[in-house]
Amino acid sequence: MDLSKVKMVVTDMDGTLLNSKHEVSPKFLEQFTQLRKKNILFVAASGRQYHSIIDKLYTIKDDILVIAENGAITKDKNEEILQTGLDRATILDLLQLISTIDNVYPVLCGKKKAYIRPDSKEFAEKFKEYYASYELLENLEDYDDEILKIAIYHFESSETYIYPKVKHLESTLKVKVSGENWLDLSHVNAHKGYALQKLQDIFNISAAETMVFGDFNNDLEMLALADFSFAMANAHPNVTKAANYTTKSNDEYGVETILDQLLKN
């Protein structure tokens, strides 16, 4: 595997770059310094809120590109490169549909902050890991923001309990099982692949010069844009099938293992 032409490294966060405790390793931060010296761009691509990604990568925030909210917003430092949100009519229709699904917790993911109902302390504790800036709203229809996507949480399985109720929306929206407990509803062009393609175009970087790491279905589109696409050992079967290569799990420094090989080149 000749990695000498790689000019851009793109990695998902949860289940990929972050360990099971949602931590970034000191080893990666050391590797990032070396990536910069070699003029290799680094992109953090996550379903997380932009503010949450920046919190996790705070020490390097001024030197990275960020694809947040599963591609609904992309930034280079504070400069917005791309935004693909939802219109109010669609949001209201989706909130009505979600209200018919049992035991789920919707999140309106806004440009300024995220919005949840104050009806579950247990969910709020889970939610805080992924959203650094948020507000409690008794009625989610009362939001005052640009909404980038709607995330839905189920404590057992988003794929089992949420996806069957919303899969009929796939002809008009992007419906993504983005984690064991999360499903995202967004604009049809709001996905990591669409955002990554924009960055590749801006920086004139080809698939042969791109390395991507992922673990769940919301990573599939961006994995398809890289010759060096890696599925984590803990990845969803769909991701393992789609990727060209595999690496160790997120708790075994799977990303860092491959970056070591890249930096040796």
Results as ranks from 00 to 15, higher is better:
251 D>S: 01
138 E>S: 10
240 T>C: 08
97 L>V: 08
151 A>H: 01
20 S>W: 00
79 E>R: 10
141 E>Y: 08
217 N>Q: 12
116 I>Y: 01
55 D>C: 01
64 I>M: 10
101 I>R: 10
230 F>R: 14
155 F>R: 04
25 S>K: 11
186 S>F: 13
166 V>R: 00
79 E>P: 06
158 S>A: 15
15 G>M: 02
190 A>C: 07
113 K>S: 11
138 E>Q: 14
179 G>N: 08
181 N>G: 01
229 S>A: 13
108 L>K: 06
106 P>Y: 05
41 L>T: 01
150 I>P: 01
41 L>H: 00
30 E>S: 05
69 E>M: 09
73 I>N: 03
239 V>E: 04
133 S>Q: 15
78 N>C: 03
179 G>E: 05
247 T>N: 09
161 Y>R: 04
63 D>Y: 11
198 K>H: 12
126 K>D: 04
225 L>G: 05
144 D>I: 00
49 Q>I: 13
72 A>K: 12
238 N>I: 00
239 V>P: 00
253 Y>F: 13
158 S>P: 02
30 E>F: 04
75 K>Q: 14
45 A>H: 13
212 V>G: 01
148 L>R: 03
223 L>N: 09
215 D>F: 11
179 G>F: 03
85 G>P: 07
246 T>Y: 06
14 D>E: 06
198 K>S: 10
107 V>E: 09
216 F>H: 15
42 F>W: 10
126 K>M: 04
195 A>F: 04
154 H>T: 03
12 D>K: 04
148 L>D: 03
91 I>D: 02
238 N>C: 05
21 K>I: 02
137 L>H: 14
174 K>C: 14
71 G>N: 10
177 V>N: 15
192 K>T: 02
223 L>I: 08
191 H>Q: 11
103 N>Q: 13
244 N>I: 09
26 P>R: 03
230 F>L: 07
69 E>Q: 14
18 L>H: 04
180 E>D: 06
23 E>F: 10
112 K>P: 00
249 S>N: 02
36 R>T: 10
169 L>Y: 13
113 K>F: 04
116 I>A: 02
44 A>Y: 09
164 P>D: 06
86 L>W: 01
177 V>W: 04
7 K>F: 00
12 D>L: 03
60 I>E: 05
85 G>A: 09
237 P>E: 09
4 S>W: 07
151 A>Q: 07
252 E>G: 03
104 V>W: 14
140 L>M: 05
205 I>G: 02
69 E>V: 15
264 K>W: 09
79 E>H: 11
136 L>S: 11
6 V>D: 03
47 G>W: 02
106 P>D: 08
124 A>C: 08
158 S>C: 08
174 K>V: 08
126 K>I: 11
124 A>P: 03
130 Y>K: 12
54 I>K: 14
114 A>C: 15
113 K>D: 06
81 I>H: 09
156 E>N: 12
45 A>T: 12
226 A>L: 07
146 E>T: 10
242 A>V: 12
261 Q>H: 06
27 K>Q: 09
223 L>E: 11
162 I>D: 02
248 K>T: 14
200 Q>G: 07
144 D>T: 06
25 S>Y: 05
150 I>F: 12
188 V>F: 00
12 D>S: 07
92 L>H: 07
18 L>N: 02
166 V>Y: 00
127 F>N: 07
119 D>F: 14
198 K>G: 01
36 R>H: 06
258 I>H: 11
56 K>H: 15
33 T>P: 00
236 H>N: 12
149 K>D: 08
42 F>V: 04
201 D>C: 00
